[in-house]
Each structure stands twice: as C-alpha cells, then as structure tokens.
Computed example of a mutant assay.
Amino acid sequence: MAQITVVNNTGSDINVFVAKDNETDDGSFITVSANGGTESWDRNNWQAVFIARDQAAGSPLEVVLGVPNQTVYIN
C-alpha cells in the first residue's frame, strides 16, 4: 500500500488527520512532533490532509492535498 507522509517543520507540535476511503486505521487526529517530526498513513488515493495547529474548540483547520507516495511539508 502507498503512503501519505507529513513532515512538521514548525516549532510546535501539530495534529493531523488524513481522510480515508476503506483503510482500517481508526481515523483519529495524530500528533506530529515539532522540528521535523514525521508520520505516515497508508492511503492508495489522493486525500484531504487536515492540520490543526491549536487544540482549542473553534480553532481553524488547514486543509492540503495528500498524494500517495509523496510528502506534505508543514511550515
């Protein structure tokens, strides 16, 4: 299976959710550590990648495109 990888190049932890089709993960936001932290999700299709820089209710989400076998860099 292909993977979508997210690298966090910011100075703070971020929380990331990668949309899914029929994959078996639990679909939770995952914390990606600051300063180069990396996480990968098994995905075979393009997916929306949601980034939360703050955990407060009502905080904005950023959405970028995740493509299998490519890396999304968050700066």
Results as ranks from 00 to 15, higher is better:
1 M>V: 07
1 M>E: 11
5 T>F: 01
5 T>Q: 05
5 T>C: 10
6 V>E: 00
7 V>C: 05
7 V>H: 03
7 V>W: 01
8 N>Y: 05
8 N>S: 07
9 N>D: 12
10 T>P: 13
10 T>W: 08
11 G>A: 12
12 S>V: 09
13 D>F: 09
13 D>A: 15
14 I>L: 14
15 N>W: 15
16 V>I: 14
18 V>K: 01
18 V>S: 01
18 V>P: 01
19 A>H: 13
21 D>V: 11
22 N>L: 07
24 T>N: 14
24 T>E: 12
24 T>W: 09
25 D>Y: 03
25 D>W: 03
28 S>N: 12
30 I>R: 08
33 S>A: 14
35 N>C: 07
36 G>Y: 11
36 G>F: 09
36 G>H: 13
37 G>Q: 02
37 G>V: 00
38 T>V: 15
40 S>R: 01
40 S>G: 03
41 W>A: 05
43 R>Y: 12
45 N>R: 08
46 W>S: 09
46 W>Y: 06
46 W>F: 04
47 Q>M: 06
48 A>E: 11
49 V>A: 04
50 F>G: 02
51 I>T: 00
52 A>K: 15
53 R>G: 05
54 D>Q: 14
55 Q>N: 15
55 Q>W: 11
56 A>P: 00
57 A>I: 06
57 A>Y: 08
57 A>P: 02
59 S>F: 05
60 P>T: 02
61 L>F: 15
61 L>G: 01
61 L>R: 10
62 E>H: 00
65 L>M: 14
68 P>K: 00
68 P>H: 00
68 P>I: 00
69 N>H: 04
69 N>L: 07
70 Q>C: 11
70 Q>I: 03
71 T>E: 09
72 V>I: 15
73 Y>N: 14
74 I>P: 08
74 I>E: 14
74 I>N: 07
75 N>P: 11
75 N>L: 04
